[in-house]
Design a protein around this nucleic acid. Structure first.
Length: 218
DNA sequence: GCTCTCACATGGTGCGTGCT
DNA sequence: AGCACGCACCATGTGAGAGC
């Protein structure tokens, strides 16, 4: 089972849709989670059709901010449990009959909204009975090694993120290749790279899927 | 003096719309 | 379809202030 997650920073323009289709051809994922779609949910059904995906559930962007979509291939059994502007929560059933929980998460940068988003994850945690995989654009890092260039992130913010992961009993999945998942696309010493996107998983997923690997694509 | 946080200005980027 | 423009969003850079 392959899950592809992409922080697309807007999926409304044709070039980005072309890039998405290319990613699907190269990686052939069973499930795709897109965040920062920056478009209305209705638009996603058109993109789902163009990408030849069987199912689609989208959350509209808040004007030009946020927006998420979960799409899945024919034959993959995905049931949406709940959603908000911060997350899409689903149960995925594998061919062998086993199931796991998959939550796509979009973290906020604004402090008050950030706490709302963490509360949402806490609520999801209370309803999870199976292995739990959370893929998030958390907009947060755990320590200084997860940011290269630019100003240092506040210590309080990094500690808060670590505490939340501890509280939810989620473990960070290190990527097999690469480290940073986001950059500001600037040249030379103005370039800033951060590890804002990551998979975090519950302990039982670690036991059930010991060969689970996370790659940075591109 | 050092570190951290906050507010504001700035620049890069993407979407929506209108025009050709 | 391609282009230009305006608008909106977001991260960065800078300076000021607070706390140690």
């Amino acid at each position: 089972m392959k899950i592809l997650c992409w922080n697309c920073r807007g999926v409304g323009n044709p070039a980005t849709v072309r890039e998405l289709k290319q990613l699907l051809v190269v990686n052939v994922p069973d499930i795709i989670f897109l965040c920062e779609t920056k478009i209305h949910a209705n638009e996603l059904s058109r993109i789902r059709f163009m990408c030849r995906m069987e199912g689609c559930f989208a959350v509209s962007s808040d004007r030009k901010s946020g927006g998420m979509a979960l799409m899945w291939r024919e034959g993959v059994n995905v049931t949406i449990q709940n959603y908000s502007k911060y997350h899409i929560d689903s149960v995925v059933r594998r061919e062998e009959g086993e199931k796991f929980r998959f939550t796509g998460f979009y973290g906020q940068t604004e402090p008050s909204l950030r706490n709302e988003a963490w509360d949402m994850l806490r609520r999801v945690k209370n309803t999870v009975n199976e292995g739990w995989i959370v893929r998030g654009d958390f907009n947060a890092i755990l320590n200084d090694s997860e940011k290269d260039g630019g100003r240092r992130k506040s210590r309080a913010g990094m500690d808060e993120f670590g505490d939340i992961l501890d509280e939810l009993s989620l473990r960070d999945v290190k990527t097999f290749n690469g480290w940073f998942t986001w950059s500001n696309n600037r040249e030379g010493n103005r370039m800033v790279k951060e590890r804002l996107d990551r998979f975090v998983i519950s302990d039982d997923i670690m036991e059930k899927m010991p060969f689970l690997v996370s790659y940075v694509v591109r």
